[in-house]
Amino acid sequence: MSEVTLRPFLASDAAWLVKQHQTLYARDEGFDETFGALVADILAEFVAQNDPARERGWIAMEGERRIGSIFCVRAGPRTAKLRLFLLTPESRGKGLGKRLLKTCMAFARAAGYDDMQLWTHESHRAACALYAAAGWRLVDSRPVHSFGVDLVEQSWRIDL
Rank of each mutant, 00 (worst) to 15 (best):
C72K: 01
E153T: 10
Y113I: 10
A132C: 12
F31M: 11
S12T: 11
D159T: 15
S2I: 00
T103M: 14
Q154D: 05
E90T: 15
F31A: 09
E64F: 00
S91L: 10
I70Q: 03
H121E: 14
F31R: 03
R137N: 12
E90I: 11
S91Y: 08
T120K: 05
V149I: 11
L24P: 07
K94I: 14
V139D: 06
Y25G: 09
D159Q: 15
C72S: 06
R78N: 05
F85N: 02
L101H: 08
G36T: 08
D41M: 04
A53H: 01
P52D: 01
R125Q: 14
L151A: 07
Q20G: 04
M1T: 04
P77I: 08
A26Q: 11
L160M: 15
L100K: 05
A53S: 02
T103I: 11
A53T: 04
F71E: 04
R56P: 00
V152M: 07
L10Q: 12
E153A: 15
L43A: 05
L17G: 06
G95W: 09
L138F: 08
E153K: 15
V144R: 13
S2F: 03
A132Y: 07
E33Q: 12
S155F: 13
L118S: 07
M61K: 01
L138N: 09
G135C: 15
P77G: 11
A44C: 03
R65W: 01
A11T: 03
F107L: 12
A44Y: 03
L101G: 08
T79L: 12
A80Q: 03
K102N: 13
Y25D: 05
Q20K: 11
R65L: 03
N50C: 07
A133S: 14
V152N: 10
K81I: 00
F31W: 10
L87E: 04
K81R: 13
G95Q: 10
G57N: 01
F71H: 07
E55T: 00
K102C: 11
F35D: 12
